[in-house]
Every structure is written in structure tokens, then in C-alpha cells.
């Protein structure tokens, strides 16, 4: 039976599929990227609709915002061209389409069974019931930094590995020319505003939507704005300080976790009275690392400061 209240949901879902299709089938890369960004923004609305405001914030900042920025500069790098679609035989394409259709139906069947036909009890109750003991009142933060903190630790390590990769393979992207007066003025209030917003998101994450990832992404946006305005360093320090910034999240997280281990608890088992403050400390460090990593990913390449360290390294070797 068709229910009118479902109409907005059906509309949103249809638009998502339509945008994805358009982004994927576009031969013009720039158009594809712009459609992808629009897709990300629409997805943020869907997250909000599904009562996931933490995700809506993160998607707008990371999924659409920073991914979009990265993809757009990739276009500027001249990754474009290559109009030729894959030269697959008609049979091959037909087989791929058949495979896609069958798998979609199978996945859809399972989803229909597990969500609609025989709904399954999952972790919602348990996770919400344990909230009192987690040190925060935002359940998503409780999962991220307490129940499943180990995931988040490893995820910070993933970010670290990726940003090292960016530093290893590339040289720094050439900077932009100095901004015009209007943009220059804009930068002067936009950057402080972004920094304050990041601080707010970080603080509020304990009891309301927000947290380290959203704050880190917002802070990174400040760096990117600086970069666009012609500040080549994008607000990042050089050399050793940058290294400290990049490992802060992983390092603090790991050391606190091991501290619990040594002092009689399990790894990452915070004492209940302290968990709120410990989570905040970890989040501050994680925000700094994520922001630094994301700005570096945008700026690209080895930084001068980084090279400087290595050069000093080499000169020492030669002299010794």
C-alpha cells in the first residue's frame, strides 16, 4: 500500500540514485566531480533525515567538502583527458550488467528480509543503556571513543599511513597567487570563524552532534582557505613540529590506552570517573592530527620542512 508520508523519502532516494548515475556516466570529468559533490550534499540531507546529525556534519565537511576539494584540484592537475570509455566487448558489458542486476537483487532480498520481514534486534539498546558509564552523553561519541575506541585508533593510523603516502610520492603543488582584496578581507574573518567552529564542534561532541572528525575537517577547511588566499604553508608548521602534529592523535590515544593496560585495567579501559576528560584529551589530539593530515593531503607533496630534516640527515652522514 502506498503511503503519502513516504513520498519525501522516495523522492530523496530517487534523487540520490539519479545523481549517482549522472556522476558516474558523465564523460566530462569536471561535470562528474561537480555532480559527485552535489551527491555528497544530498547524502548529508539523507543522514539528517535518518536521525544521524553527526554523519550529516561529517559528510558535508569530509564526504562532499574535502573529497570535492581534492577531486577538483585533481582536475586542475590535468588528470583529465582520457575520454575513451573502456573498450569492452558487448558481451562483456552485458555480463557485467547481468552480474550487477543479480547482485543488487540478492542484496536487496537480504535487506528486505532483515529489515522488514523479520526485523532483528541489534546493539541499539545495549549501546544506549551503557551510555551512563561511557563518560559522554552523545551515543555516537561513546561508540567512537569508548566502546569501539580501538577502531578509531586504527583509523587514525590509516590516516597517518595515507598522508605519509601523499608525502612520499609527490612534490608540493604549486601555490596560488596572492588573493585579491575582497577575498583577502573574506579570509580574515572566515578563518577565525572556522577555527572557532572547529573548537565548538570538538567541545560539543561530548553531548551533542560533533566531535573530533567534524572538528578536524572544519579546521582543515580553514587551512585550505588560507592556501587559496595565497598563504603557501596553509597554516601548517614545518619540520619537526609538523611531525608531532601528525602523530599527536595516534600517539596520545595509544599511550593513554597502554597507560590503562599498565595500571591494571584493560587496554583503553578508562576509569569511569575520568573517561569524560580522557576522551576530550584524545579528541583534541585527534582533531589536530586529522586537520594537519587533511590539509597536507590537499596541499600535496613533501614539504620543505620535511625535506630539510632529511637534508640535514644526509649532511650529517657525509661529515661523519
Amino acid at each position: 500500500m502506498m503511503n503519502l508520508t513516504l513520498l519525501p523519502d522516495l523522492l530523496l532516494a530517487g534523487m540520490l540514485i539519479g545523481l549517482a548515475w549522472a556522476a558516474l556516466s558523465s564523460d566530462d570529468l569536471r561535470r562528474g566531480v561537480v555532480l559527485f559533490i552535489a551527491f555528497g550534499l544530498l547524502l548529508a540531507i539523507v543522514w539528517a533525515r535518518l536521525l544521524a546529525p553527526d554523519l550529516a556534519l561529517a559528510e558535508a565537511a569530509i564526504g562532499a567538502g574535502l573529497s570535492g576539494a581534492l577531486l577538483l584540484v585533481a582536475l586542475r592537475d590535468g588528470s583529465g583527458g582520457d575520454k575513451r570509455a573502456a573498450k569492452r566487448s558487448r558481451l562483456n558489458r552485458w555480463l557485467i550488467d547481468l552480474f550487477v542486476l543479480v547482485m543488487t537483487c540478492l542484496i536487496g532480498w537480504v535487506l528486505w528480509l532483515t529489515i522488514y520481514a523479520e526485523p532483528v534486534e541489534r546493539l541499539a539498546q545495549l549501546a544506549n543503556a551503557m551510555l551512563d558509564r561511557s563518560g559522554v552523553s552523545n551515543p555516537v561519541t561513546a561508540v567512537l571513543l569508548n566502546y569501539r575506541a580501538y577502531d578509531t585508533l586504527l583509523e587514525l593510523v590509516v590516516v597517518l599511513a595515507a598522508v605519509l603516502g601523499v608525502l612520499v610520492v609527490g612534490r608540493e603543488r604549486r601555490g596560488y597567487r596572492e588573493a585579491g582584496p575582497v577575498f583577502y578581507g573574506l579570509v580574515h574573518w572566515l578563518v577565525p570563524l572556522l577555527i572557532v567552529t572547529a573548537g565548538y564542534l570538538l567541545w560539543v561532541g561530548a553531548h551533542a552532534p560533533g566531535g573530533a572528525f567534524q572538528a578536524g575537517a572544519t579546521l582543515a577547511a580553514a587551512g585550505i582557505v588560507l592556501r587559496l588566499a595565497g598563504y603557501d604553508a596553509a597554516g601548517l608548521p614545518d619540520g619537526r613540529l609538523l611531525r608531532w602534529l601528525l602523530v599527536a592523535g595516534t600517539g596520545v590515544f595509544l599511550l593513554l590506552g597502554l597507560g590503562m593496560n599498565v595500571s591494571g585495567g584493560r587496554f583503553l579501559q578508562y576509569p569511569e570517573a575520568w573517561s569524560g576528560s580522557l576522551i576530550l584529551v584524545i579528541e583534541v589530539a585527534a582533531t589536530a592530527s586529522i586537520a594537519a593530515a587533511l590539509v597536507l593531503a590537499y596541499r600535496g607533496g613533501r614539504t620543505d620542512g620535511w625535506l630539510f630534516m632529511d637534508n640535514k640527515d644526509k649532511s650529517r652522514e657525509v661529515s661523519s
Binding site: 611531525r243 601528525l246 602523530v247 595516534t250 600517539g251 595509544l254 599511550l255 593496560n261 587496554f267
Partner: peptide
Amino acid sequence: NNLLIWPVAVPLLSAVLTLLWPRR
């Protein structure tokens, strides 16, 4: 059983230290 975290924690901690002291 706390022993179980060390095969993960030791290389990770070493990675952090390596990043901070590249000369060593």
C-alpha cells in the same frame, strides 16, 4: 590476557617514535 595488545601496540609505538626521530 592484556598481553594480547602488545603485538599491535609495540610496532605502532615504534612507528610513532620513528616518525618523530627520523634520524634514528
